[in-house]
Write a protein that binds this DNA or RNA. Sequence first.
DNA 1: CGATGTCAAGGAATC
DNA 2: GATTCCTTGACATCG
Length: 319
Amino acid sequence: MRLGFAVKVLGKEGIKSSDARRWQNSPHLKFSIEYAHIVFDYLEATGITMYRLPSDFAPYLTHPDLPQFHNQLEEAHDELVELGKHAQKLNLRLSFHPSQYILLNSPNEKLTEGSIREFVAASTMLDIMGCGSEAVVVTHVGGVYGDRDGSIARFIKHYNERLPEVAKKRLVLENDDKSYGVADTLRIHKSTGVRLIFDHQHHSCINNGEMTHEEACCASLKTWGTNGRPKIHFSSPRIENRTIMRRDKETGKRKASECAPLMSQHADMVDSDVFVPFARSVRELCGIEFDVMCEAKSKDLAVLQLREDLQKAGDFVVE
DNA sequence: CGATGTCAAGGAATC
DNA sequence: GATTCCTTGACATCG
C-alpha cells in the first residue's frame, strides 16, 4: 500500500508546487518542473511514494485568450522526460486532478472541448514522463443541469465518442460529495470501462444507504482489473458547528444563526481509528490491494502520521 | 514588512 | 437575472 498526498508540501518551508505567477510575468512549465524536482527530493527524504501534481502545473496551458502558453509541453519536453526519470528512480506514483472548471459532461460545447484539451494535456505530460498506467488523471462526473440521467448519458457519450485514446488511458472517475455517488460511477464504468476512484468521505456525504463503504469501495476497486493497482481517496471530516451571520428579514439586521455542521470539509489528519478497520474490512471483503491518497488538510504530515499508525497496527505493508 | 485584494475558468443555491 | 458560495495558496499591490 502506497500513501500519498496532493500538491502542497507542508512538512518543510519554502517548497513551491508550481509556477503560480500571473500571466503578465510569463510563468512556465519549466519552472514548475524545477519545483517538482525539489518536491521529489522531499518525498525521497520522507519515504512518501505517491504524489498528486498541481492542476496548474503548466500555467494557462489551454487558456483560450493566451496562445503564447499553448506550446509549453513541447518547450519543456526534455525537462519532462528528466522529471519522469526522477520519479521512476524513486518508484513514485504520480497523478493529476484537473480543477472544478474542467468538465467532461457539459452541454456547453466550448467548455467540453476545452476540458478535453485539458485531459489530453495532463495525460500527455504523464506519457512524456514515461509513467505507467497507474499514473492517472482524476475527474468527477460534472454538473447535473437539472437532468441527472441526461447528464450521465452525456458523460458516457463524450467519453466514448470524443475523448482521444491518450486521455482514455489515463482518465479515472471519482464519486463526488453532492451529485454523483458510486452507483452512478459504476453505471458509467459499465458503459465506458473507465476506472473508478472510491472517495470514502464523499460516500459518507451522499450516504444513500444502498451500499456500505466497503461494498462501494470493493466495487470501485474491481473496475481496475489488471490495469494497475487501484487507488482510493481517504480523508476524515472536519466536524464543526458553524455560526453564520444571516440577515434578519424583519429588522434588516445581521444576527448569528446556527448552521448544520459541514461534513464535506477535511480534517487536519486522517483518523486511523476509522481507516484501519475500514481497510481491514475491504481486505476481507475483496482482497484487492490499493493505494491511498490522503486528502487531509495537513497533507504530507497526515501521510506520515497515518504511516506510523499503520505500522503500529502491524498488518499493513506500506511501501 | 504586514495586511489585504485577487486570481481564467463553472455549477448550484439563493434571492 | 444577479449574487454568493464552494475552497486554496500564494502572487501582487498597497499602506
